[in-house]
Design a protein around this nucleic acid. Structure first.
Length: 232
DNA sequence: CCTGAGCCCTGGGGGC
DNA sequence: TGCCCCCAGGGCTCAG
């Protein structure tokens, strides 16, 4: 990295990368607790600071902090356009080249539940556990519904719902439950208060009043309304 | 090929 | 207070 110039930034799904001198890339994934922070050069070393980049133009430092160390940084030669380690990651719903009919067809060909497919980053990237639950709630589909049993229009509606909920979340700076989830300036987002399903076990569905139910899936928690999102 | 379980880590919170 | 278990917005590897 010494002597490199950052000439741009890019992202795909949950991966992001800094473009270096137009050809190479510094690829990053925040995992579950990673943070990219722009801080003062005098800022003390953070408790979970893993890397710090200083600049010769007298500006701020760039830090990578990560408590749980599921996040990572990787230098990738020639990876400016698309780093080779993430060539298998599908385009996300905000990508101008996102092929929605193609993605719908792939989802329909899967022999597993719709939520698992939404979380499969090789099918569609960028959707995580929270936004998958929110999209399924909005589309009134239960996450364990076999993907192949849903109509193309229903699958399309789920994707639209995911794009809508992520758009709304981005407008509010994201979903922050605690100090792990902050932007480069260290600020938290406000979308947590707008969640309709995730984390609301026992509380009334905002649509029909039925208590939201929490279930286990893939070593994690899934939240849904048992009335609006009936299992079929 | 496709699918799903296991596992990589640290730390906060609740129950006992 | 201390201890233990559970939980956490992810994704790779590998067995079946």
């Amino acid at each position: 990295m010494v002597g490199a110039t950052i000439t741009g930034t890019a992202r795909r799904g949950k991966y992001l990368w800094l473009i270096l001198d137009g050809d190479d890339a510094l690829l990053a994934h925040l995992g579950m607790s990673g943070q990219m922070l722009i801080t003062s050069p005098d800022a003390a070393v953070g408790a979970h600071e893993r890397a710090r980049f200083t600049f010769t133009d007298g500006g701020h430092d760039l830090r990578f902090d990560d408590q749980r160390t599921f996040g990572h940084l990787m230098y990738d030669e020639g990876g400016a356009v698309l780093p080779s380690p993430i060539a298998h990651i599908a385009r996300d719903p905000f990508d101008p080249l996102f092929d929605q009919p193609g993605v719908v067809a792939v989802i329909k060909s899967k022999r597993t539940g719709i939520k698992r497919v939404l979380l499969d980053q090789t099918v569609v990237s960028g959707i995580g556990n929270i936004y998958a639950d929110e999209a399924l709630w909005a589309a009134k589909v239960h996450g364990e519904t076999p993907a192949a049993s849903l109509s193309r229009s229903r699958i399309s509606a789920v994707i639209e719902a995911a794009r809508d909920v992520m758009t709304a979340a981005l407008a509010q700076g994201g979903t922050s439950f605690d100090s792990h989830y902050v932007d480069v300036a260290g600020s938290s987002g406000y979308f947590a208060r707008s969640l309709n399903a995730y984390g609301r076990a026992g509380r009334p569905c905002r649509r029909c009043g039925t208590p939201i139910v929490r279930e286990k899936l893939m070593n994690g928690s899934s939240y849904s309304c048992p009335l609006c999102q009936r299992k079929r």
